[in-house]
Design a protein around this nucleic acid. Structure first.
Length: 105
DNA sequence: ACCTTGACGGTTC
DNA sequence: GGAACCGCCAAGG
């Protein structure tokens, strides 16, 4: 299973698509909210690398969650101005070779 | 069974 | 960019 690489971000819709649930981005957000800090299956879930399609952090600016997410992203070199992140530079785009490498034939 | 609530998204103006 | 609108759907009241 692959996770979003550090230093990169993905949007809710993108994750929904990868999960075979096109158009159900909200469901992804809701699901992330239920993930314990410790993660599931002994895997830590990098929820902070998921933002909305407008390239913004989806928490009210100034809220505790907002600040925590912003900080963790910045800790891994992702540039965050206000709530905005330049998807053009930081959005995760798995390339073909990477997909083929992880695919079980 | 009905209504509300979301860590959303695409379209349009 | 930004705001209004509408579509989406699982959970919980």
């Amino acid at each position: 299973m692959q996770l979003i690489p550090q230093g990169k971000v993905a949007c809710y819709g993108q994750i929904a698509d990868l999960a075979g649930l096109p158009g159900r981005a909200r469901l992804v957000g809701k699901a992330l909210g239920k993930v314990p800090k410790s993660g599931w299956h002994g895997q830590v879930v990098p929820w902070f690398r998921v933002i909305n399609s407008q390239g913004k952090i989806s928490f009210p600016p100034g809220s505790e969650n907002f600040e925590k997410q912003k900080q963790q992203l910045q800790d891994e070199q992702v540039v965050v101005l206000g709530a905005r992140i330049k998807l053009k530079d930081f959005q995760w785009q798995p390339d073909l070779s990477e997909i083929l490498f992880f695919l079980e034939f």
